[in-house]
């Protein structure tokens, strides 16, 4: 894998719509649950252990499905003529990715969060298909965000562990950055917090990569009920700064 390509995908400046989502921080700030650095830390630790871990697992599994036969792709003359095996592979791949996408659906209790996840997935896919035009997308135009992250990593030539890292780290920094903007917290203090939590992202990503071939039902299924409830409230606010 290429470390610099991983940085391209993990960069908050990647135009993938992430800046408009707070990962639940805007609602939690309004409810008074996040108001300073310690409460932000609790939120980030909880979020990483639940939805962050799920996102990492599904991004890794999607990337694995797309890259498992990579070594031979495009190298065999007349490979396209051998329609039967490649069609079979394509069908199996599409089936696995669809099952992973359904797996996010059933792990996301809040309809508002399902909508937000697909909006972010669509936005990321828009960026991916412009940056890596040869990207393989078996998931249709509106995949869940972790599925799109797996597609992005595969298109960029990265592996399942990288996909998982982008997913869990992106969730962490997106939420942290929203807290800086909403609460005016000291950005150095918040980034010190992000740096402290970074090893946890490594651990979550390594675990996700190790389980990337597991059946969908065996993949992590953590959720945070307040994130779900807050998201439903947030979606009907009259005035909000973030899409989710």
């Amino acid at each position: 894998m290429s470390l610099s390509t991983l940085l391209v995908l993990a960069d908050g400046r990647l135009p993938s719509g992430a800046h408009a989502h707070s990962g639940g921080v805007e609602a939690a700030v309004s409810a008074g649950r996040i108001h300073d650095l310690p409460t932000l830390e609790s939120f980030l630790v909880g979020r990483t252990a639940t939805t962050g871990t799920v996102a990492a697992a599904f991004a890794a599994a999607t990337c694995r499905a797309l890259t498992s036969g990579r070594s031979g792709v495009g190298t065999v003359p007349h490979a396209r003529d051998e329609a039967t095996p490649s069609d079979g592979d394509g069908a199996r791949l599409a089936e696995r990715v669809a099952a992973l996408d359904d797996g996010i659906d059933v792990r996301t209790a809040s309809p508002a969060l399902r909508v937000a996840s697909r909006a972010q997935g669509r936005a990321l896919l828009r960026a991916v298909t412009r940056i890596w035009p040869a990207a393989t997308n078996p998931a249709g135009p509106n995949p869940h965000h972790p599925i799109a992250t797996g597609i992005a990593a595969a298109a960029a030539g990265l592996g399942p562990g990288d996909a998982a890292l982008v997913a869990v780290y992106g969730g962490l920094t997106g939420s942290a950055s929203a807290a800086v903007r909403l609460l005016g917290l000291d950005p150095y203090a918040v980034h010190a917090l992000v740096a402290r939590l970074a090893p946890e992202c490594d651990r979550v990503a390594a675990d996700a990569a190790a389980r990337a071939d597991d059946p969908v039902d065996d993949l992590p299924a953590g959720s945070a009920i307040l994130l779900d409830l807050d998201a439903e409230q947030h979606a009907i606010w009259e005035v909000r700064l973030f899409a989710s």
Binding site: R13, L14, P15, S16, G17, A18, H19, A20, H21, S22, A123, R126, A127, A178, R181, L182, R240, L241, F242, A243
Partner: peptide, 15 residues
């Protein structure tokens, strides 16, 4: 929605 960054939504990340 522009996530507190109206200029980002029209210039840097137009998605």
């Amino acid at each position: 929605e522009t996530g507190c960054c109206p200029h980002t939504a029209i210039r840097d990340d137009i998605s």
